[in-house]
Design a protein around this nucleic acid. Structure first.
Length: 489
RNA sequence: GUUCCCUUCGUCUAGAGGCCCAGGACAUCGCCCUUUCACGGCGAAGACACGGGUUCGACUCCCGUAGGGAACGCCA
């Protein structure tokens, strides 16, 4: 028995990784790493209908992007297993589940059941209105293995049902998040272990894998809390050591309903595409249900690892707030060094078709101007657009400026003063000087002076400080722009 | 219906009987900085679901009620 802490994340590959799953994975990862333990990835692909290879790849990729690297499990790129407890895809562990199913069958703790869907529906129909939860009553419960085998040999399909143990009145366990939880044992009936296809069902393989893969802790979402009863029964029947359980509450949408697609972005990839940093997403997710001991909020991953603990987890559900995520993201962007930031921005600017200078001094200057405006990486596109030669246009917000009778003289003065300068790029000082000259020559000041100049330069009445913006645009381009504005005035 | 879980500002939360006529953060609003905007600084508004106990004292403990959620599958 190893004493090292081991936790796993076990997604079912039926779609993209969404933020709820990501948070469960994160908490497991943080707990494992904070205890010098191991983080394992297992793929629960026993639902043949819905599981796809594509979804599996997508989930692994998302987890990898988040930086939640696993010590064991399929490799994100090659999908080749790494670790001593494999295989890590349940669809490749069928023989193992069969073996344990046979064991329970032989011990009389499970039985073959030939009930058809129609018969079960009929039972359910009949039970309507009666007190208590519906439970399947199987007439095959006490059949011997030999009896059942005969029908199977005759070609009939059977599921393997667990014989729910009624000798105890309650099953109890200590949940790391919720404290003592107690279930009446008659809460569940004889549930299915193996489908008629031979495919095992979630609760069965989950227990076997968690035990065989030597998990010390099992963290999962609250919706699994009730499943724990069945799993406890299976642990007991198989004689496995029971791990510690922790059930985190769910993530809700604004309407307090379980977060789903109709709430907007929910998958990790969507946030990635929209320009969120993995560390920011992780930071936000960690705070959704957990607080830092000193209530600090902007936390790099390393701080998360060192300060995370179950004692500060909340057990009530939390509403996902994109505004706060955005704020956290902006903070992480501000902490990025300029080279890294540009490395992240450049591909997005290119993808948007912007043609920008490539000299490092220009890049550095531009970042100085714009970095305080970035809430997401994607914001860079609209920020850089005004200084990209191809993308100049006059914004509707500039309309008011054209209505002032002083604006035209400002445009003209700006043009003539600009024409008179001889450098290709204006320096900050040159621009400030030029601005003063415009002021003198037309006798206009304040808003009536600065707004038209701004419009002549970026086509909008608001934006980053001009004296740092102007040096980023060539004189010829500035002239082209003032002409366009003049044509409209 | 049955069982289980949950309930502090709009949102995320602090609070482990007196420190709380409840603190922080996001969002909102106002002021300052800035001859724009953003960043930043300062400030305002804003909550213990309800009802009973226990106690000298309850946001904190107990019991109900209400509300929300989950499970009751050959989904996970």
């Amino acid at each position: 028995m190893s004493s090292i802490v081991r936790l796993r994340f076990a997604p079912s590959p039926t779609g993209h990784l969404h933020v709820g799953g990501a948070r469960t994975a994160l908490y497991s990862y943080l707990y494992a790493k904070g205890h010098d333990g191991e983080f394992i990835l297992r793929v629960e692909d026993t639902d043949e209908e819905r599981s796809t290879e594509e979804a599996m790849k997508s989930q692994l990729e998302a987890l990898d992007w988040l930086g939640l690297r696993w010590d064991e499990g399929p490799d994100a790129e090659t999908l080749v297993d790494r670790g001593d407890h494999g295989p890590y895809r349940q669809s490749q562990r069928l023989a193992i589940y069969k073996k344990y199913s046979d064991q329970l069958l032989a011990e009389g703790l499970a039985y073959y059941c030939f009930l058809t869907d129609e018969e079960i529906d009929a039972q359910r129909e009949k039970a309507k209105g009666t007190v208590g939860a519906f439970q399947v009553e199987s007439p095959y419960r006490e059949w011997t293995l030999e009896q059942a085998q005969k029908r199977i040999d005759a070609g009939e399909n059977a599921v393997v049902r667990f014989k729910a143990d009624r000798s105890k009145t309650h099953y109890q366990f200590k949940d790391l998040v919720r404290g003592d939880v107690k279930f009446p044992s008659d809460m569940v009936g004889d549930f299915v272990l193996l489908r008629s296809s031979g495919m095992p069902v979630y609760n069965f393989c989950c227990v076997i894998d968690d035990a065989l893969m030597q998990m010390t802790h099992v963290f999962r979402s609250e919706e699994h809390l009730n499943n724990t009863l069945r799993q406890l029964m299976i642990y007991e029947a198989l004689g496995f050591q029971i791990p510690e359980f922790g059930h985190f509450s769910m993530i809700l949408g604004e309407d307090k309903q379980k977060l789903s697609k109709r709430h907007g972005a929910t998958s990790v990839q969507q946030f990635r595409d929209r320009g969120f940093l993995p560390d920011a997403l992780i930071n936000y997710l960690a705070l959704l249900g957990w607080t830092h001991p000193k209530e600090e909020e902007i936390l790099p991953k390393a701080d998360l690892v060192s300060s995370f603990g179950l004692d500060r987890i909340t057990s009530s559900p939390a509403v996902f707030d994109e505004k706060k995520l955005t704020w956290i993201n902006a903070n992480h962007i501000k902490r990025l060094d300029k080279d890294r930031l540009w490395g992240l921005l450049e591909p997005r600017l290119k993808a948007a078709g912007l043609e920008l200078p490539t000299e490092s001094t220009w890049i550095e200057k531009s970042l100085q101007v714009f970095s305080s405006y970035l809430e997401t990486l994607e914001d860079a596109v609209s920020l850089y657009q005004p200084i990209s030669p191809k993308h100049f246009d006059i914004d509707a917000a500039a309309d008011q400026v054209f209505e002032w009778d002083t604006s035209k003289s400002v445009f003209e003065a700006w043009k003539s003063i600009l024409s008179a300068t001889d450098s290709e790029f204006l320096s900050e000082e040159q621009f400030v000087q030029a601005q003063d000259q415009v002021k003198e020559s037309c006798g206009v000041k304040g808003k009536n002076l600065f707004m038209p100049i701004r419009v002549a330069i970026i086509g909008k009445p608001h934006g980053a400080e001009l004296k740092i913006l102007v040096p980023l645009v060539s004189k010829s381009e500035l002239l082209r722009r003032v002409d366009l504005v003049l044509a409209k005035a």
